[in-house]
Design a protein around this nucleic acid. Structure first.
Lengths: 340, 340
DNA sequence: CCTGGAAACGTAACCGATAACGATTGCAGT
DNA sequence: ACTGCAATCGTTATCGGTTACGTTTCCAGG
């Protein structure tokens, strides 16, 4: 009679198989020095007890665990994309993935969450970590790859080419004839937000259009932060004919505000976002945006981390992935194409 | 000179503070029996070394870890909703969350993944686990809560009221005058799929309409599985005037097929889904569907698991959450309301 | 028969932290 | 001064698994 609720530890297997735990370990790990007969006995006992090695105990003793960690501040829809990409990269690689989330920081501004999360995991559990949009510089004795790092970070990272993407987006609006283009920025400490604003400025400057600071709203990537900023921009006596938002989430809020103010898109206002989240394809009109595949970011980050852990990484430690402009219905020439 | 790369273990702290590891442990855990002066010394040493307790070592020794696990077969957009809900429920509860994903099973049919995942975590790492749409019966010595369990499962679980939701959906179509209503089913082993089909049958039977088996397509919740089934249904000489799909993902594919065949929705065909995923609100026309808040499911599952772990759970161990019909543009009376 | 060496296997230390337990100290009560 | 109790802190077993090391077994070669 087998206790179904029993923990089924390695010593249980050893007892049933009539050998020592050392031998069981050798069988489990496929090490040399066990006779075929003993292996069979041990395997049988493992089968019989439904034994599974404890991740915890193994990781405590071993230096390598073949488990990679991923820490994130919150779960958005793009987080799922990142996870899908990471899982794809780790598919049949022998590496498992653990995502760690601390309940204490939910919804609250909690400086330093990355460090705490990583410290918890990186002790012995994981061989390395992916950090999704850290708020600060991250360090650990095990390898770390940041997705969308903070400005000036020198740690290994994967980022979309935010500068080029934003430049292209604004150039698109310029080519349509827009001259007064508003901008809603993201969290300024993040490199992505900074680059996107930089692209906005660069495109305007290249077109010999002075940057008007009053046309820039300081959002924080949180969609809700865009609503009041969009209202302020669109209620001006001289409203912009187009608004470029640093994220699709914020751009969708701009669309809402436009509808609320009775402005037609793209007739009265063109809107361009950044990210290309699934929802952007499904609005009416569809949102013109810059595609950065979060799936791809997750994929590359996991691939890079895996290589760093196994010490096989060759290429640069700061990967920049290309972006592409996705033109949909939300952008069109301004109603009165007043050219200088 | 402090080694930044050093592990910074508890014995390091003990050495620096000039006390034993036991005392450090007492300080860390706020236990009784340490003088104020010693506490200050230890805290100082912790600060100095940047010490963080190892999750692994702690969980190995302790019976309680205050970490809950969540295992899922894959990451979909709804998974993010579940995670958000679970995080909300665990907010400031002292419980952290670990999501474990095995790379080997990505994209492959891997029977028994829940058991392996749970065994890895449940050894000592977590105090309990949430299992998202398990494919089989799950067991563990630590508490388990299943979201959307298999049929006949007696384990603690949280489910949407699929039967009532599906019944309401079909009744909605019936009240619009539809009499030939197609159905695209989900993975039949899951309780949710079974209940939704049951609701479809019940509603028809209540309306004295015989169930036509040829109007039922056997999907598996995977959106792609719906495409050929929808084509088969709509290319019939006597096509249904409405199709009820067991999931929004599949319903959206039905919309695609309808467009492909030149059928207008809702003019030529009404479509109703189930789940109310974000995309459903943004299609043109909007998808009429049954709302089951995955966020709510995640929230309730985490709340229940937390209570089970702390032994405070009072209510029933099988929670059923209400659903609600969300009527959008994809459902309308059939073009020719031919009544029997 | 004796020896060498490899194969096979057990013993025990160890990973980092916790907690039961014992030992020491301080202080109040008598 | 002696007893008793509480406060404080160190020692050590323990969690489950890994591995260095030691021991035993066995067989080939001399």
């Amino acid at each position: 009679m087998i206790e179904v609720n029993a923990p089924a530890t390695m010593s249980d297997v050893a007892r049933v198989a009539g050998v020592s735990t050392a031998t069981v370990s050798r069988v489990v790990n496929g090490h040399y020095g066990v006779s075929a007969r003993t292996i069979a006995q041990v395997r049988s006992a493992i089968e019989q007890l439904g034994y599974e090695s404890s991740l915890v105990a193994t990781s405590l003793r071993r230096s390598r665990t073949n488990v990679l960690g991923l820490v994130t501040h919150s779960f958005q829809s793009y987080t799922a994309e990142v996870l899908k990409g990471a899982m794809k990269a780790l598919s049949r690689s022998g590496f498992d993935l653990i995502i760690y989330a601390n309940s204490d920081l939910y919804g609250s501004y909690s400086e330093g969450w990355e460090k705490r999360h990583i410290a918890r995991l990186s002790g012995t559990l994981t061989d390395g970590c992916i950090v999704v949009t850290p708020w600060g510089e991250v360090q650990s004795r095990t390898p770390i790859v940041a997705i969308d790092p903070v400005r000036g970070s020198t740690a290994p990272s994967v980022t979309a080419d935010n500068l080029a993407g934003a430049t292209t987006a604004v150039e698109h609006l310029l080519s349509l004839g827009h001259r007064r283009i508003g901008f809603i920025a993201g969290r300024s400490s993040l490199a992505s937000a900074w680059s996107r604003e930089e692209g906005y400025r660069a495109a305007l400057t290249s077109a010999d259009i002075p940057v008007d600071p009053t046309l820039i709203g300081e959002g924080d990537f949180n969609p809700e932060s865009a609503t009041p900023l969009a209202r302020a921009l669109l209620r001006r006596t001289d409203p912009p004919t187009a608004i470029f938002a640093a994220s699709d989430g914020m751009a969708l809020k701009v669309l809402e505000v436009a509808a609320e103010l009775g402005l037609s898109v793209p007739g009265d206002l063109s809107v361009v976002g950044f990210d290309n989240i699934p929802e952007s394809a499904l609005t009416e009109p569809g949102l013109t945006t810059v595609d950065q595949s979060m799936y791809q970011l997750g994929y590359e980050a996991a691939r890079m981390l895996k290589s760093l852990v196994t010490d096989e990484w060759e290429g640069p430690r700061q990967v920049v992935l290309p972006t592409s402009l996705v033109v949909r219905g939300s952008s069109a020439p301004p109603r009165s194409t007043a050219r200088g």
